[in-house]
Nucleic acid binder design. Structure first.
Lengths: 333, 333
DNA sequence: TTGAAAGCGCTACCAA
DNA sequence: TTGGTAGCGCTTTCAA
């Protein structure tokens, strides 16, 4: 007869150790309210080890009525260095506070539909980057037991805590800088990659705002992330009369800079270029790329916000503006 | 009296609709084995909507005895464009096969300890990038009900399916190419960022292998990802007598290329440079960067492997070598 | 110091 | 066509 290796339960451990399931639970959880003899303790541990017993998280949290799971949607677009580092840091910090961070790959789901899917997992907290979660979604999550919903992105949502990433400030920085450098006909790159609008449009608005009331003009420059698109844009450049460009970020800036240089346009002589994100590559370009340095919150700060919110679910939603932007002037502007 | 908004359960829905919990379950799951009258169906849906009912995933899978969760450890280091795209694709493909992809942020846990933590979630399949999972870990996962464990990385592990990423092939490509271009004193960059050894060392070994039996020499070049480190390496360059370098990847190549050029060393005249990953930035450098193009498996292929393995858990572990490497020669070599 | 048993939310078998 | 109910694995109260 073949023994089917069913996954061992605490009952199996109890049987093997010759005790009750209750005792097993006491021992394995180090329940302090109950004193178990050292002999029993040993027998239980031994039995658990022998069977390779692993507790069943779902059963446990079902019984407990709550979990320590912090849920984040997995980013659909590959994240950059900057944001990736932030995520790692956050995971570490939450882990140290004894939360279990889980990224849920709900690719394809959107807005409140996604919220439903997340709610099925009954997380104690939900962290939502970007826009796309409505008040409805927040309500669903809270009704499903989420004690904290934190959005990280451009706007705030009724009922949720918010880390406001003020991408307009990035644009304002760039716009003001270019204007201060004497530029007046300013282009702003709008990246073609989908999913970037949430950042690109506020940045554009920021440039507009910085130049409001001046004699400078702002021109939108849609640009796909390809050499061909950049070359085409560069070819049209002389006719456009633009003397400066905020290139959305450092990578687009590099793309555009190269195309402009290949076209014989001098930087910063003919055109001032500024990027954003302060990536290493900007320092490696010639001329060195000016950029807007973006200061994300520390993962620890966000982790602490989550923890506070979980401990006091009734509290007023906190709203923090957390994105510092400052110009790093190098040689391209 | 304040009404505490307890999370609604299927019992609440049943009560409101005036039916039994069984009926609620039948309706909401569209159970085909049972026919429910349209009127009842409507009442149940209405009640569920009104209460904002969301099923409890843990309870469901506890009852069912299995889940559709595919677990992956969340990458500790920020992933590059290439691998990020692969992950997104994989998530999409698994989602289409009706699996739920979950990335578990077990930062700090290692090896078989991490396997325990994953096993608590009772995933139907586990996908482990990189090394770091031992046969013990695989056994724990399987005993906990995982029907498929797939490693994606440099080596294979007893009992697990493997997608072998042959990073030696990347090094072999680069080495053979440089040798064919007439270079004999070849440097290989070893990146300083932690976590990259699993890729860097096989690539180095590949270069060594490609040059075995020739008169070429291989020199290890540890390099931190900073301008200072690169400048220092470039300053020592003339004394080293190296006439070629495989720079680990395109980003390190860019860093090093710039430092060499700043030092007055000509590329490819004095030194041939080749990177890897075939990133856009390589095309934007001058001279254009030669690179090793790395062909990752499609997310769909991996998703199908997972699905096969889940359907036939007894099957022999599949081992695939899935990393295609080919040189893209541009101007730097 | 240990055991018996209830019950978390859900599904599926069997009976009505 | 619908309802009663057992039981998934676990923790915790109450009793012994």
């Amino acid at each position: 007869m073949v023994q089917i290796p069913n996954t061992p339960t605490s009952a199996d451990v109890a049987r093997l150790a010759g005790v009750s399931r209750a005792t097993v639970s006491y021992v394995l959880n180090n329940t302090s309210a109950v004193r178990i003899s050292e002999a029993t303790r040993l027998r239980v541990h031994e039995a658990a080890r022998e069977l390779g017993y692993v507790p069943h998280a779902a059963a446990r949290s079902l019984r407990a009525g709550h979990s320590r799971m912090v849920l984040m949607p997995a980013p659909a677009i590959p994240v950059g260095h900057l944001y990736g580092r932030f995520l790692s840091e956050l995971q570490g910090a939450l882990g140290r506070l004894d939360y279990t961070v889980v990224q849920y790959g709900g690719a394809g789901l959107h807005g409140d539909e996604a919220a439903r899917a997340w709610a099925e997992l009954r997380p104690v907290a939900v962290l939502v980057p970007g826009a796309g979660l409505g008040p409805q979604g927040v309500a669903v999550l809270k009704r499903s037991g989420a004690r904290a919903v934190v959005t990280v992105g451009p706007g705030r949502v009724e009922g949720a805590h918010a880390l406001l990433m003020d991408h307009e400030a990035v644009g304002r920085c760039a716009g003001a800088h270019l204007h201060a450098r004497g530029r007046r006909r300013i282009g702003v790159v709008l990246p073609g990659e989908p999913g970037l609008e949430d950042y690109a449009l506020p940045r554009l608005a920021g440039v507009r705002e910085a130049l409001r009331g001046t004699d400078a003009t702002v021109t939108e420059l849609p640009l796909a992330y390809s050499e061909e698109a950049a070359a085409e844009l560069a070819a049209r450049w002389p006719a456009s009369g633009l003397d400066a460009v905020f290139a959305y970020n450092d990578e687009y800036a590099m793309l555009l800079m190269r195309a402009l240089q290949d076209e014989g346009i001098r930087i910063p002589g003919d055109v001032a270029v500024i990027g954003a994100d302060d990536l290493m590559l900007g320092r490696l370009l010639r001329p060195r790329l000016s950029t807007v340095h973006i200061q994300l919150p520390s993962g620890r700060d966000l982790a602490e916000l989550v923890d506070r919110a979980v401990r006091d679910p009734g509290g007023e939603p906190e709203v923090h503006t957390v994105l510092g932007a400052s110009v790093v002037r190098r040689e391209s502007s």
